[in-house]
Simulated assay, not measured.
Amino acid sequence: MKHISYSFSNSDIEAITFALTVLPSLELEETEAQAAINYQCCCSAGEKLLKHDTNIAPNEFRVILASLQAVQLINQGELEVDQETKQKCSSYLFTVNKLVSVFNKQMS
């Protein structure tokens, strides 16, 4: 398990849990099996963060970063979504950009 060395604010957790709801709806996975794995990881990662548990499994870490990057791509106009989702994503613009940077540093 990976322990994230970052102190999440409530707005960080809100942005991440929002992003974790967006990723499964994009249906970017190539197989149903991968979609199911990603969905379960989104659920478990969100639950852990809501409990302020930062003992994140590698697959949970992966889906958190992928979710944040997806929201970032939506905000940049590189992923097409409905207007309502796009508007919600834009409300997390600055927090998501900050968190993508934080998570990318955790990868190195």
Rank of each mutant, 00 (worst) to 15 (best):
L68Y: 01
L28Y: 09
Q34I: 11
E60H: 03
G46M: 00
A66F: 06
L23Y: 13
T54H: 10
T21K: 05
V63Q: 02
I37H: 08
V63M: 01
K88C: 05
T17H: 01
F103H: 05
S90D: 11
M107W: 05
R62E: 14
S25L: 15
L50E: 05
E84G: 04
L26Q: 08
I16G: 05
L65D: 01
D53Y: 05
A33T: 09
V96N: 03
A33L: 14
N75M: 10
I13A: 06
S25H: 11
F61S: 02
R62C: 06
D82Y: 05
T54C: 10
L49S: 00
S90F: 14
A36T: 11
S67W: 02
S108K: 13
T85H: 02
V96S: 03
S90E: 13
Y92S: 01
E84Y: 12
S11W: 14
V81C: 07
L26P: 06
E29H: 08
K98E: 12
E30P: 03
S67V: 02
I37Q: 08
S108A: 12
D12S: 11
N38A: 07
V81K: 05
T21W: 06
S7D: 15
N10A: 10
M107Y: 08
C41Y: 02
N38M: 10
L73K: 14
N75A: 11
K98V: 03
I37P: 07
S7E: 15
V81F: 05
I4V: 14
L65R: 03
N97Q: 10
V96I: 09
V81H: 04
C89Y: 01
K2Q: 14
L50N: 12
